[in-house]
Design a protein around this nucleic acid. Structure first.
Length: 286
DNA sequence: CGTGGGACCTGAACGC
DNA sequence: TGCGTTCAGGTCCCAC
């Protein structure tokens, strides 16, 4: 079953965490951090595990960030971009990364990898059990434009549908390709395909124009709902007050392999596609 | 170039 | 009870 987050002192303040964080979860983290973060001035950048720093040494991180104030924070795909007066800090949560404010350097959290100490004695903590997450220092966030396709929620459904073009590769694999469309991960890909009635293994080239539009609308629907519900609580995710998010209650297929489809009652299938657990209804999705 | 598969990680679930 | 094994998954890297 699902993992239990050890609550307690370590998450007693603003705990923004997201397992399997996709666009809605990362957006929720950014929105949660923004009000408290803006204006804070760094007096220390500390890496408790050097591997968290993407292509940089701890001394450089500290030297570059010290004395600079946070002037903005935004999301691009699944990346969190924080502007420190011209110096950019990019955070990717990957699977188990969390960002939250704390008064203490490490508290009781055994998975703290990086933290920023501010002038007001608060700290922004980056915690990550699996050590997949990364923090990097950049002069500009422009490099992300080379890695990522368009944001699916800032374009029209027709424009989004127009991006869904490809050959024989399965549509599920396509949706996970950040260079095509940014921010979609395993969960929301499965959910959108279910709503659109498309089997994950279906080749992109086989999708009719109406089907592509339906998929685009389904993607926008599940992503917007995800944001509205402040992300999905699976595994480690909790809202700032320790309560669970609610988007998972709206999942139609993700994690429901072996259970009946809400639409037709048929048992949902679980297969592995592109190395990812993939869930669908063999009746509703063709 | 497009595509697929393994590596990176370790907590949790599972099997005996 | 306790040990060993397997799984999860975003992105990078490499082979085909």
């Amino acid at each position: 079953m699902l993992a239990r987050v050890p609550l307690g002192p370590r998450l007693s303040r603003v705990a923004m965490e997201a397992p399997l964080p996709e666009l809605p979860e990362v957006e929720t983290v950014v929105r949660g951090l923004r009000p408290e973060l803006i204006g804070k001035k760094v007096n220390e950048a500390l890496a408790l595990w050097a591997g968290v720093l993407d292509g940089g040494d701890p001394t450089r991180f500290n030297a570059c960030l010290k004395g600079r104030a946070a002037t903005g924070i935004h999301r691009r795909g699944k990346y969190i971009c924080i502007d420190f007066e011209g110096v950019g800090l990019v955070v990717h949560l990957r699977m188990t990364g969390r960002l939250y404010f704390s008064e203490k350097r490490e508290g009781n959290d055994p998975w703290v990898r990086f933290s920023l100490g501010f002038d007001d004695r608060t700290r922004l903590i980056f915690s990550d059990a699996r050590k997949f997450g990364r923090v990097s220092l950049v002069e500009s966030f422009d490099f992300l434009e080379q890695k990522l396709g368009p944001e699916p929620l800032t374009i029209s459904d027709k424009q989004l549908a127009g991006l869904i073009v490809g050959g024989r590769r399965p549509i599920k694999t396509f949706l996970l390709d950040q260079k095509k469309i940014a921010g979609i991960g395993n969960i929301y890909a499965d959910e959108a395909l279910h709503i659109a009635g498309i089997r994950p293994t279906r080749a992109v080239a086989d999708l009719s124009k109406p089907k592509r539009l339906k998929l685009a609308q389904a993607l926008q629907l599940v992503l917007e709902r995800g944001i509205d519900h402040e992300g999905a609580t699976i595994g480690w995710y909790r809202k700032p007050d320790g309560a669970e998010g609610s988007q998972q209650e709206h999942f139609k297929v993700y994690g429901r392999g072996g259970q009946p489809c809400h639409g037709c009652g048929r048992i949902l299938e679980r297969i592995v596609l592109a190395g990812r657990g993939t869930h669908y209804c063999p009746t509703c999705q063709l």
